[in-house]
Amino acid sequence: MPLRPALATAAGAALLLLVAAPSARADSDVTADTRETVTVDKTVRMAADGTVTVGGTYSCVDSTGPVFVSASVGQRASTTRFAIGGTLAVCDGKKHRWENKSKPSPAVLKHGKADVEATLVELRPVDGLGGLPLPHFHAALKKDVTLSKA
């Protein structure tokens, strides 16, 4: 396989992994280091126009590439998940607030019970791949929430 198509395929896979974070059990925190955490607020807001706002806190240490807090929301009536933005994170060991906002299309989310998957993911450059960044997961959380009116 020529190098250029292989790198394009690897880059596409890395971007897909950034949005499709590993699933964790409901209300569980998956992290290798107790100083690296991500939380989700119990209530997620949905405006009349369908814009969803989700937030929480995070902390992380020792990053070599850019780190993002990504989030997705889903409801039990559907297997579809909706990506709710991404926030650039600062990995300085301190607790920071994050908030992502997005308008899923088509607007099929309804007020009521939902779940949020939040992931603290770093895009680390890999030696030998021409600096191609691959995802490194610092923390992940899946939490049951209430999707309420904004």
Results as ranks from 00 to 15, higher is better:
28 S>V: 07
40 V>F: 00
27 D>Y: 03
98 W>P: 06
128 G>Q: 04
37 T>F: 12
107 A>F: 10
98 W>Y: 10
86 G>K: 04
142 K>I: 11
29 D>I: 15
141 L>N: 11
9 T>W: 15
90 V>A: 09
29 D>R: 12
35 R>Y: 08
48 A>I: 13
116 V>T: 00
44 V>L: 01
138 H>C: 09
132 L>P: 00
58 Y>L: 05
33 D>T: 08
10 A>V: 07
3 L>K: 03
93 G>N: 14
144 D>S: 11
133 P>E: 00
136 H>M: 10
81 R>T: 15
69 V>R: 02
83 A>C: 08
93 G>T: 13
137 F>P: 06
38 V>M: 01
105 S>W: 06
51 T>H: 13
6 A>R: 15
34 T>D: 14
36 E>I: 05
136 H>G: 15
24 A>Y: 08
6 A>V: 10
133 P>N: 00
29 D>L: 15
49 D>K: 08
43 T>C: 08
11 A>V: 00
95 K>W: 06
54 V>L: 00
40 V>N: 01
37 T>M: 10
148 S>C: 09
59 S>C: 08
65 G>R: 11
124 R>M: 14
100 N>I: 02
144 D>L: 09
73 V>R: 07
11 A>Y: 01
123 L>Y: 03
134 L>Q: 05
97 R>M: 05
63 S>T: 07
83 A>G: 12
61 V>G: 13
18 L>Q: 01
122 E>G: 03
91 C>N: 05
34 T>C: 07
120 L>C: 12
65 G>F: 09
15 L>A: 13
82 F>H: 03
7 L>N: 04
32 A>R: 11
23 S>W: 13
59 S>I: 05
143 K>N: 04
12 G>E: 12
48 A>K: 13
103 K>L: 12
13 A>F: 06
85 G>N: 01
150 A>K: 00
138 H>M: 12
45 R>I: 10
2 P>C: 06
14 A>T: 06
32 A>E: 11
62 D>Y: 12
49 D>Q: 09
18 L>P: 00
14 A>E: 05
142 K>Y: 11
34 T>A: 14
37 T>Y: 12
27 D>E: 03
97 R>F: 05
4 R>N: 07
77 A>P: 02
97 R>W: 04
43 T>N: 11
124 R>T: 12
145 V>W: 04
63 S>M: 06
96 H>Y: 02
132 L>Y: 01
62 D>R: 15
14 A>F: 04
150 A>W: 01
9 T>E: 14
79 T>F: 09
82 F>N: 01
39 T>E: 02
40 V>T: 00
103 K>V: 10
62 D>M: 13
61 V>K: 11
10 A>S: 13
43 T>E: 13
106 P>M: 11
41 D>P: 00
96 H>F: 00
65 G>E: 12
15 L>T: 09
106 P>Y: 10
61 V>P: 08
76 R>I: 12
77 A>W: 03
3 L>C: 03
2 P>S: 12
44 V>P: 01
89 A>L: 02
85 G>Y: 01
102 S>I: 13
52 V>E: 08
25 R>Q: 11
9 T>L: 15
34 T>E: 14
108 V>L: 14
132 L>G: 00
79 T>W: 10
115 D>L: 09
25 R>M: 07
148 S>T: 13
9 T>A: 14
